[in-house]
Design a protein around this nucleic acid. Structure first.
Lengths: 151, 151
DNA sequence: TGACTAACGTTCGTGGCACTAACGAAATTA
DNA sequence: TAATTTCGTTAGTGCCACGAACGTTAGTCA
């Protein structure tokens, strides 16, 4: 795909490198999770549900960053697999309450181990301290630009 | 979009942060270049053409990483704007030779200044040395994973 | 020379992702 | 009571990475 054929000034554009690396990382985790019949969004949703307890879809959307229109399919897939349950909220009949099941918890633990491996594969070229620095940079960039977007 | 609502363990997944940052960076440059009636691929193609001289579309594809099927539209757009010329290669009638025009060179210089600003905006939260470290990390990750893909 | 193989430019299609619009139903506010 | 907002859902947009297949042309080699 990307070669040393690419002229240096183009090869060094940070946003370009970033998007290429992101593509690689994305494929890595997508393929890895596929082996466990899961997608990234399954991981995000289950992690959020375990941490926050039962919540509505709208709130789960805000928590995970998954658009509520896309979340519908994710919840469908997770209910099909028995990892979550979708029930109408008696207190507010517009809402669905999403709850993680025991099976979902067990599944999530497998996913978490898998995910740790995948992140490790992804960061393989970096030493421990370098990984911390790298993720710190990412966190700062993320904070900066998502703050701008909100304004 | 992304909030501090997100539970910490999810928020810290490196590949997730990376893809969020990449999305921000991408939007930044896409919107920035749109103001100059250009796309990222225009920049990549023009940079490559200036560095390598006239080449065939297939070679330009290898050099820039743009798929040759997608490159067709890019060359169309650039010829419409008078930035490149597409001519059949008399030495090999399968090939089109793509050449950057003088107008293309002038356009590219504007794009290069614009791109420098955009990269600067993108990296704003990082100091000079930090930027170098960050791009070094990216380069190493990129080299690692594109080497794997080729094998 | 003739058959095979490979490269080229092009068109079309796929799947995923970020994101918007609009809707009926239900809740909240004025 | 009327107007506004929220919720889940469906449908659709545009962009991107990528693959399949096709006709055309070149190179290979029996």
């Amino acid at each position: 795909m990307d070669e040393q054929l690419t002229p240096a000034p183009l090869r060094k554009v940070p946003s370009r490198m970033l998007s290429l690396v992101a593509t690689h990382a994305d494929r890595l985790v997508t393929e890895g999770l596929a082996g466990a019949d899961a997608r990234k969004w399954h991981y995000a949703a289950l992690m959020a549900l375990r941490a926050s307890g039962p919540v509505s879809q709208a709130e789960l959307s805000r928590i995970t960053g998954i658009y509520r229109s896309d979340l519908v399919a994710v919840i469908n897939e997770l209910t099909e697999r028995g990892h979550v349950e979708r029930a109408p909220d008696p207190a507010d009949r517009r809402r669905n309450v999403i709850t993680i099941t025991d099976q979902g918890r067990r599944h999530l633990e497998r996913l978490q181990r898998l995910m740790a491996e995948l992140q490790d594969d992804f960061l393989a070229p970096l030493s421990g301290p370098e990984r911390e620095q790298f993720t710190d940079f990412l966190a700062r960039l993320l904070a900066h630009h998502s703050r701008l977007r909100r304004a």
